[in-house]
Amino acid sequence: MVVLVTIYFYLYFDFCKILKNTEERVMTFKSLALPLITCLSLLAFSYLSSVLGHGSTGFILLAISIFSFSIVSLIQSSRENHTLMRASSRQLKEAK
């Protein structure tokens, strides 16, 4: 779990370097915080489920799915911002 959270925050902070605007960073944090909280809650439920002698696979699979989805979402947003930034800097150079 520690490894997953570390990867998550590494990608998040890496993405934030692109976002110079603090407001954008806060919005990104808000949009990604809840998926992370949900993943951690699902993992907590899976642990509790195994303690109760009940199956925990479903919770774990769901946590991994949401985690993967949020990583993909973060990477896609990062690529879109990279593309936008390159396009705008190219336009600036052409204008000069």
């Binding site: 949009s31 909280i37 949900t38 949020s70």
Partner: peptide, 14 residues
């Protein structure tokens, strides 16, 4: 829909 999926799973747990 990442937020909606996360909320719709977190809220029943809470």
């Amino acid at each position: 829909s990442l937020f909606l999926i996360s909320f719709a799973i977190l809220m029943p747990m809470l």
